[in-house]
């Protein structure tokens, strides 16, 4: 399905010297044929403006991404992304592998700070506060953002301690508060009934799907403003996937969710808005119904329907 966007294009693209705003288009030698004017323009590194639907302007935005660029060393992973994320809604990020979805997601809570070679430019704001402002306290910022990773990553401790981890690191000692938050979060992640009798068991003994829901419980325990989900269902079976999708449905409204997915059905079922990325650029962004039923760009339609050529 996403065959065409694999390594060759990317590798060739990454080799482009000083990619940012380079005026001369790189040679197209050996590049696989990419249909569509937009893809060609992107591959040729030509200036290109994302197609953002008008419907977004009416929303209240929890997260604003403005002209955001990111480099891993010399290779550029994100190109001037401008993308407002609506409050209380589910926004899906789709696009071929390696297009920078995870990178964008990890930029929101500054997980990319952990990688030495990363350099960024541009602006991101969480409820009006600049994320990359020089004085910004990263630790405090991350506490306002919940993140669930592609692979479940429970901590080597009990289920209970996993869920209340963010409270623990804030120094919360009150047993009642901890127990309340634990129950509420586990219920929120619809895991409570399965684990309520063994909260003190090691979290590593849960099944993969349970672990992923535990990670969601952990993320919502801190009551974050934004929830970042990076392919939360990629390692799960259909039943667990369905549960997580139900969960996302339930969380919608109280949380603003930014979610990466490779599953078009999932994006169309669960999200309110969908952003299509390609080679580090935002291509088209709008209400999910519009993107799936009447996209403005032919390339988006091709990608969604699995026809790239």
């Amino acid at each position: 399905m996403t065959e065409i966007a694999r390594k060759p294009t990317l590798a060739q693209y990454e080799l482009t010297p000083q990619p940012r705003k380079s005026a001369s288009p790189p040679s197209m030698n050996g590049a696989p044929s990419i249909s569509g004017r937009v893809f060609q323009a992107i591959a040729a590194n030509e200036p290109f403006t994302a197609e953002v639907h008008a419907g977004l302007a009416n929303e209240e935005h929890v997260l604003e991404i403005e002209r955001f660029d990111l480099w891993y060393g010399a290779s550029r992973a994100l190109h001037s992304i401008t993308m407002p994320v609506p409050k209380g809604k589910v926004t899906a990020l789709i696009g071929p592998s390696g297009c920078g979805k995870s990178t964008l997601l990890r930029s929101v809570n500054r997980m990319n700070d952990l990688i030495d070679s990363v350099r960024i430019e541009g602006e991101m704001r969480l409820s009006g506060d600049s994320i990359y402002a020089p004085g910004q306290d990263v630790i405090e910022l991350r506490k306002r953002i919940g993140m669930v990773f592609q692979k479940p990553n429970p901590f080597p401790m009990s289920i209970f301690e996993n869920v209340v981890y963010s409270l623990r690191i804030d120094g919360e000692r009150d047993k009642r508060v901890l127990a309340e938050v634990c129950e509420a979060s586990l219920r929120g992640a619809s895991l409570w009934d399965e684990v309520k009798d063994r909260l003190n068991d090691s979290a590593l003994r849960l099944s993969g799907g349970q672990q992923q829901r535990l990670c969601i419980a952990r993320a919502i325990a801190a009551e974050p403003e934004v929830l970042l989900l990076d392919e939360p269902c990629s390692a799960l079976d259909p039943i667990a996937t369905a549960r997580i999708e139900d969960l996302i449905d339930e969380l919608k409204g109280s949380y603003s969710i930014l979610m990466v997915t490779h599953n078009m059905q999932q994006a169309s079922r669960t999200s309110d808005f969908t952003a299509f990325m390609y080679l580090g650029r935002l291509v088209e962004y709008g209400p999910t119904g519009d993107i799936f039923l009447q996209p403005h760009l032919k390339e988006t339609e091709d990608y969604i329907s699995g026809r790239f050529g």
Binding site: E140, K143, M147, K151, S166, R218, A222
Partner: peptide, 15 residues
């Protein structure tokens, strides 16, 4: 120790 565990902790706002 898996990097994913560390990342999970950082993402929770741990120092």
């Amino acid at each position: 120790v898996p990097g994913s565990m560390r990342e999970g902790s950082y993402a929770c706002g741990a120092t």
